[in-house]
Computed example of a mutant assay.
Amino acid sequence: MAEPRLAAGIWVSAYLARLRLSDIPVFVTAKGDETAGAVLVKSNTLDGQAQLFQRSLDLMSGARAWIVLAEGGETEIDAAIERQKRFDPDLWVIEVEDRAGRTLLDEPGLAD
């Protein structure tokens, strides 16, 4: 039996709280569907570079993991986000600003 998925809005709220507790600036740049919206996380290192993360499902194991969807110049990442938003109007986009590139996505409770 598959694990129940946490509603997107609840996950986003918890993620924002974790980042703020770690003094990592974060902004919601697109608010998606509260229940089932997909979430993209943009990691902005404030040097013109960025990475874009998306949660992916491993079909063999059923595990969910964050993968790098795109990386490069910030303008390229912003263009990739806009393309995704055209396909999915329920998409959440969260921008994390940290010179060290910390996103906390690999921490327990956020990684899966």
Results as ranks from 00 to 15, higher is better:
Ser13Ala: 15
Ala14Ile: 05
Ala14Asp: 12
Tyr15Cys: 06
Tyr15Phe: 13
Tyr15Ser: 02
Leu16Arg: 12
Leu16Glu: 10
Ala17Gln: 13
Arg18Pro: 06
Arg18Met: 08
Arg18Leu: 02
Arg20Cys: 08
Ser22Gly: 08
Asp23Val: 13
Asp23Lys: 12
Ile24Asp: 02
Ile24Arg: 04
Val26Ser: 07
Phe27Arg: 14
Phe27His: 15
Phe27Ser: 13
Phe27Gly: 12
Phe27Asp: 12
Phe27Ala: 13
Val28Trp: 05
Val28Lys: 01
Thr29Phe: 06
Thr29Pro: 08
Thr29Val: 06
Lys31Pro: 07
Lys31Asn: 11
Gly32Ile: 04
Asp33Ala: 02
Glu34Leu: 03
Glu34Thr: 00
Glu34Arg: 00
Thr35Ala: 14
Thr35Met: 14
Gly37Ile: 04
Leu40Pro: 01
Leu40Asp: 01
Val41Tyr: 05
Val41Pro: 01
Val41Thr: 10
Val41Gln: 01
Lys42Glu: 15
Ser43Ile: 03
Ser43Gln: 04
Thr45Ser: 14
Thr45Ile: 09
Thr45Val: 11
Thr45Pro: 02
Thr45Trp: 03
Leu46Ile: 03
Asp47His: 11
Gly48Trp: 11
Gly48Cys: 02
Gln49His: 07
Gln49Phe: 10
Gln49Gly: 05
Gln49Val: 00
Gln49Ala: 01
Ala50Leu: 06
Gln51Arg: 08
Gln51Tyr: 06
Phe53Val: 07
Phe53Arg: 00
Phe53Ile: 06
Gln54Leu: 13
Gln54Tyr: 13
Arg55His: 03
Arg55Asn: 02
Arg55Ala: 01
Ser56Ile: 07
Ser56Thr: 12
Leu57Trp: 06
Leu57Glu: 14
Leu57Phe: 07
Asp58Thr: 01
Asp58Lys: 04
Asp58Ser: 02
Leu59Arg: 08
Leu59Thr: 07
Leu59Met: 14
Ser61Ala: 11
Ala63Lys: 07
Ala63Asn: 14
Ala63Gln: 10
Arg64His: 07
Arg64Met: 02
Arg64Ile: 04
Arg64Phe: 08
Ala65Tyr: 10
Ala65Thr: 01
Ile67Lys: 06
Ile67Asn: 08
Val68Gly: 01
Leu69Val: 03
Leu69Tyr: 05
Leu69Asp: 00
Ala70Asn: 13
Ala70Leu: 11
Ala70Met: 06
Ala70Phe: 09
Gly72Ala: 06
Gly72His: 04
Gly72Asp: 03
Gly73Phe: 09
Gly73Asn: 11
Glu74Ile: 09
Glu74Val: 14
Thr75Ala: 15
Thr75Ser: 14
Glu76Ile: 15
Glu76Val: 14
Glu76Gly: 15
Ile77Asn: 07
Asp78Trp: 01
Asp78Ala: 07
Asp78Glu: 04
Asp78His: 03
Asp78Met: 06
Ala79Trp: 11
Ala80Met: 10
Ile81Met: 04
Ile81Cys: 09
Arg83Lys: 08
Gln84Asp: 13
Gln84His: 08
Lys85Cys: 10
Lys85Ser: 11
Arg86Cys: 07
Arg86Gly: 08
Arg86Leu: 08
Phe87Glu: 15
Asp88Met: 06
Pro89Ser: 11
Pro89Lys: 05
Pro89Thr: 09
Asp90Trp: 11
Asp90Arg: 12
Asp90Gln: 15
Leu91Thr: 00
Leu91Ala: 04
Trp92Gly: 01
